[in-house]
Amino acid sequence: MNALYTAVATANGREGRAVSSDGQIDLPLGFPQALGGNGQGTNPEQLFAAGYAACFASAMGSIARQEKIDVKDVSITAEVSIGKDEKDGGFGLAVVLRAEMPAHLEGEPGRELLEKTHAYCPYSKATRGNIDVRLVVE
């Protein structure tokens, strides 16, 4: 792959900091309360959810421009869950991508656009076959 851009960030654990090389991200990290933490600071699942939602929305915009579809009122929500991986006893992730669609994209047109976006989005490509990703049209 010929890289067009490379993001660089450094973290020192779930209860440390995450810092990007350009300083745009400088966040305290912490375990969520659901995992026994105090909830002070963001966590990797939140960061992944934000990145996936933004990337997916951008990918949808690209598809929509090609097909001359108005998606200005579409919003994408990514729900990233962490849980025990039954196969190895470690942890695994699952994602639900929720697309809130305007009236002109209700039903099959919205579902078709969602599927095309899932095939095109770099995050979806990276997770395919590794993480269960469920698509929901709302």
Rank of each mutant, 00 (worst) to 15 (best):
P44Y: 01
C121R: 09
G83P: 13
S58L: 03
K84H: 11
K125P: 08
M60E: 12
V74T: 10
A53Q: 02
Y5H: 13
I82T: 15
A53N: 03
A54E: 03
E79C: 04
A53I: 13
A11T: 09
G41I: 05
A119R: 12
L113Y: 04
P32W: 00
I25Q: 09
G13R: 03
T117Y: 00
E112A: 14
E100K: 12
D132C: 06
L114P: 02
A53E: 04
G30P: 07
E15P: 07
G36S: 07
N43P: 08
A50V: 06
V96H: 02
T42E: 10
S21A: 15
I76P: 03
F56M: 08
S75Q: 13
R65S: 15
K72N: 14
I63H: 02
E15V: 14
V74E: 05
E115Y: 00
L105Q: 14
E112T: 13
R111Q: 14
Y5K: 07
V80D: 05
I82S: 12
D26S: 08
P28C: 02
R98C: 13
G51R: 01
G61W: 02
V71N: 03
R111L: 14
Q66V: 07
E100R: 12
Q40S: 15
A50H: 01
Q33V: 15
C55S: 13
N38E: 13
P122N: 05
G110A: 07
V8C: 00
P122C: 00
V95W: 01
Y5T: 06
V95I: 15
G61K: 02
I76C: 11
P109Q: 07
K84V: 12
Q40P: 05
S75W: 05
G92L: 06
R128N: 10
N130K: 11
G23F: 00
E106H: 14
S81C: 11
N12I: 03
P109W: 00
A50T: 09
G51F: 04
T117W: 01
G13W: 00
K84I: 08
R98W: 00
D22V: 05
R111M: 08
L27Q: 07
T42V: 10
E86V: 11
G107W: 04
G16D: 08
M101E: 05
N2L: 09
N2W: 00
R14K: 10
D22N: 13
V137H: 06
N12A: 04
A50D: 11
I131S: 03
A34C: 11
R17W: 06
R134D: 10
V80M: 07
A103Q: 15
S81D: 15
L97M: 14
A18D: 11
P44V: 01
R134F: 02
G90F: 03
G92P: 02
G83V: 07
Q66S: 12
I131G: 07
S62P: 04
M1P: 06
K72M: 04
V8E: 13
R17M: 12
P122L: 03
F91E: 08
D70V: 00
K116L: 13
K87M: 09
E15Y: 05
D26V: 01
G51I: 05
K84C: 14
R65D: 15
G30V: 05
G16I: 05
L29R: 11
A119P: 01
T42N: 14
Y5W: 09
N130E: 08
A126I: 02
A18L: 14
R17V: 09
A57K: 10
E106D: 15
A11Q: 03
G92E: 11
A53V: 09
A94N: 10
T117L: 05
T77K: 12
Y120N: 14
